[in-house]
Each structure stands twice: as structure tokens, then as C-alpha cells.
Simulated scan of single mutants.
Amino acid sequence: MSTSTSDDYKVRAVRPDDWPAVKELRLDALRDPLAPVAFFETYEEAAAHPDAFWQERAIGSGENSESARQIVAEAPDGSWAGCLTVLVEEPGTKDWTGHLVERRQGHVVGVFVRPEHRGNGLIQALFDAGVEWAWQQRVERVRLFVHVDNGRAQGAYRKAGFLPSGLTVSFAKEEPESELEFVLERP
């Protein structure tokens, strides 16, 4: 566990030239023991992506995007300690679960904090920055999905102000409904 506090980190949007660090952090996230219930991609799938994929990801969710924002936390030594991404979902479209989006909303994905940086408030700093950006995009609420078996993440999301909406979905046709929607309503 880190002895740093969240104030010791620089929390900011990804820049296009950050793509190597975007790739490195995602691959590290996919090595986490809870990755199979936290992410819908395997390490092997992500590692097979060409550099162009990571470059596009850094641009598409970077500081100049109005439809997605990847927020990262730089540790005091300059390494990346964690990240999350907020996607803007438009009403009338279908989300990646296949459900109709009824309102303009933010959707948090890709939440990860390296184990040595957990427990110091960093996740809250990431959520604060991501949610603030979402409110600036005029969304009505921010949501995320979390696996029913990922208690660690559920606790962190509740601490950040997200609450279960009652919606439970499945992302794979062969799986039972196992993903809980958590929401944060606009104040």
C-alpha cells in the first residue's frame, strides 16, 4: 500500500503522446487477479493490438475529445498509478449491453488503480475528475457496471457516491445476468 495521499498525484486527461503509457497501464490492469470479472478483454487480446490501436485510443479519449475522456493519475515518480474512462452516451442510441439509452449520460469504464497505490483516496480523485468532466458535457447522470462478484470495486464505487440502480444485465449471451448498474445522479 502506498504512503502517498491522493494529493500527491497529478490527475489529468490523457494526451495523444501518452499512448505507450495507456497501453502499459491497460496491460497491467488485465494482469490483475480480478481482471476476468472486471474487464471484457483478456491480456492476450489487448497485447495483440497494434500500436495504431493504442494511438487512436489516446486520441479518442484524450484531452480534446468531447465524447470520451480517459483520466489518469500520475504518481510522484511520474509513473501512472491508475485510470478510468468516461464515455458519453446519447439518448436514442443503444449502449454496449444492447439496451436503449434513454438520456444523455456518462458511462464509466476501465477503472483501475495499481495495487501499490490503493487505499489512499486516489480512486476518489479519479472519479472526481471523471464525473466533473461528465457534468461539463451536460450529462444527466453517470453510470457504470460492476460484476456481482467484484466486492472490492462495489465498495469503491459506493464510496465515490454511486448506488445500485436495480438494473442487472449480462454482457455475454451464454452468461446469467451478472453485472450490476451503479449510478450517480446529477446534483
Rank of each mutant, 00 (worst) to 15 (best):
D17G: 12
P76A: 10
D95Y: 03
A29I: 05
A125I: 01
V37H: 11
E181W: 08
P164G: 04
R104K: 12
H99M: 13
L84K: 03
R103L: 12
T93K: 00
T97L: 09
S2P: 05
W19G: 02
A160Y: 01
L122W: 04
E116C: 13
S67W: 11
G110M: 05
L34G: 02
P91Q: 03
S61Y: 03
E175V: 13
H107K: 09
V108L: 05
R152F: 05
E132F: 07
K94C: 08
R143S: 12
E44V: 14
F127C: 03
R26L: 11
K94P: 01
V37E: 09
H147V: 09
K173G: 14
A52F: 00
W135D: 02
W19I: 02
K159Y: 02
F145N: 08
L87F: 12
V131G: 03
V146E: 03
V101L: 06
G62R: 06
G166H: 05
A156S: 09
E102Q: 10
P50G: 13
V148G: 10
A81R: 05
A58T: 03
G78P: 01
F39N: 00
F182P: 02
T85N: 02
F182W: 03
W133H: 00
Q124S: 11
V139W: 01
D51F: 08
V37A: 06
V111M: 01
F40Y: 10
W80G: 10
